[in-house]
Design a protein around this nucleic acid. Structure first.
Lengths: 214, 214, 214, 214
DNA sequence: CATGAATGAGGCTTCATTCAT
DNA sequence: GATGAATGAAGCCTCATTCAT
């Protein structure tokens, strides 16, 4: 019987994994990876530059040869996380047949898979956004808005076309979105649940929520 | 058009609200209230004793007349949050007609309402649990396990009785639970959405997820 | 085989014992006793008013009903210690036959017994004198000078009378005095050495040091 | 007329002096030296990191570039003190003719000279040992035991060979040891007593104590 | 007498960051 | 690139003490 929430840990995953496009050479890449792990497990504010440097195998001062500040490391991770998420959502939508149900399934699958494939990145992007200094936030919030709008539009179109039947359209997005968000906290490879299976199941849940029984 | 996720803030609520049973007299009560606000907005690690004391109107050292440590403040808040949540879940279940659908609705409604009524408490209880020093965690995790089990049992019973039809029973709990968890982050009184309405809608979503169309 | 020095503890004794004349009724007496224990074991600076109060069974604020400050507690203990020491030295001298050897034996015996009978008091009086705020020091240093003079005079008289033969008269006092001082650190009832025996032995050592073989 | 005990100060010496082998370059060395002075004069608990840093000419935080904690500074000083003491005792014994009297003289001279040459180090090593956190104590107590055994063995051998005549062999060590220990408190260059002279005199006292008149 | 609450000062330590090497 | 040393700010917490109750 799998454990989903009842842990003292913030997330179940243990592997630092960054999207291929975000993997970088040399110390810079290692700094990103180890910062990701620490920010995800302890939170940005509780991970020190010395902690990061130690995991990388260098001294704290040396981190500044690669990033101008700790906030820049967080900003890059959050940006990467949001970009990967939006990229997958967009790609999924573009590849889907144009009927609302197929589109919703595609988008929810992408949403869930992004959180299962990169749980640490997702946790940091979501749970540490508030720690990001204001000047870094604007471009990220813009990406976030686009991802939301994408899901909102799919739902709205389904409703408008009469395919979907939703009691409160505005509440469907946060409900469907939330399901995927939490996946990042409890997903782990040893859970015995394939990401594809989770994605399919959650896509089915989403369809049912909008009135499409399958 | 309401905003659900796209903010730099960690939660939309601005009022510190504690369950009536948890409200305390004097400075101790004020400390709890202001700590709750700070922990929810900034995170436990980024709220200092000085910050808390200043909001209370005393000096940092005086906080120690009421709590032995900062961790004790967090522990009490998280405990109160979990207890209130479990109490409501239990009460809802006990008051519900014994058919699985009614029970599921009752439990999901209680889950959502707990998060809408005490958003700060819910955010702290969920998002700051990992910051709680290990020695405080055990009793809280036990409460958490009971809340989960409660939802799991309702779902399982519905499936066993043939009332529910769920593609993967184990995935239903985290999916339904997640919907409610996120409510604490985006709910605000000025959202134009009544908590009762949200609770009803999410209860309906949950019913649909387990195959009960309404 | 007894242990004399090789401990992490500052003194071997565990019983707080004050001279009968210094024992006081009520909380004031208990405060003196428990402060003595703490000052002896940890040092004045590392024993807090809260520590003292807790051992007494009251709150820190209540200690101020009995002593105007922590320094006053220390001052009283050090005064009592010095007075008892001087009193015993004087009494021993006055009761002794007037020949230098008997006098030296009597004085050294008194010196040693004072340290074995009240080890905690002796440790505090000696090792915490430096912690006493300046305004308290003068009367105590005066007592101390009298005790020293007493021993110095006995030695000098023995030398003048030709009874003693000392290589350096000025060095005899610190050497003989030191033997007794350290007794407070290593003496314990379970050591298997009777205070009287220690006193006699050290008196013999002192006699030998001044050239009187016995 | 020299003053031996009657002071408010804890020791008469004013020069911080470390054994040549323990002198270190740069700030680390200055920290050790100034800490030694403060610990000796005020005690470990009453010397703050700010006090130390100020004497060194840096800020308190900078001390942590050289020592991981205040306790580490104390531990190093106490270790150095004990090692230097044992080294001198051993060297003296190894260089002495093998008759017990010569050996006793050599060992007592080394004991006294160590305390006169490094009075601050000796005071800290002896009077602040109890302030050393437990995890640092073991190796130091081991050194201490070896020094004691060294003196004990010399005395016992003299007794066994019939050279010494001691009323209570077990009490001879603490008595002789104490004489030297206190030297660290009252010795000062301006005392008008040469360390060599003190050492010789105390060696003679020790010989007399074990029954060897000279 | 005793206490709970408060306080200003200060304790040790960690932090992100800088800069000369 | 990397580092050792330094720093100002701030972290949590303890302290002796005061005072109204």
């Amino acid at each position: 019987m799998p454990k989903f929430l009842s842990t003292h840990r913030r997330l179940a995953a243990v592997d630092t994994l960054l999207p291929p496009a975000a993997i970088q050479d040399g110390s810079r890449g290692v700094i990103l990876g180890e910062s990701l792990r620490l920010f995800a497990e302890r939170g940005y504010g509780s991970a020190s530059m010395r902690d990061i440097a130690q995991l990388v195998g260098i001294k704290a001062a040396s981190v500044y040869s690669h990033f101008p500040s700790k906030a820049h490391v967080l900003a890059e991770l959050i940006r990467v996380g949001h970009e990967e998420h939006l990229r997958r959502m967009r790609a999924a939508l573009m590849a889907a047949e144009p009927d609302p149900t197929t589109q919703l399934k595609a988008v929810v699958r992408a949403h869930v898979l992004a959180h299962a494939d990169y749980p640490m990145l997702a946790v940091v992007a979501n749970a540490e956004l508030h720690a990001l200094p204001g000047e870094f936030a604007a471009p990220i919030l813009e990406i976030r808005r686009q991802s939301e709008m994408l899901l909102v539009d799919v739902i709205q179109r389904g409703v408008d076309m009469g395919t979907f039947n939703v009691p409160d359209v505005q509440l469907a997005m946060p409900a469907i979105g939330a399901m995927g968000l939490r996946v990042a906290h409890w997903y782990a490879p040893d859970l015995g649940k394939d990401p594809e299976h989770i994605a399919d199941t959650f896509a089915q849940f989403a369809c049912r929520m909008v009135g499409v029984m399958t």
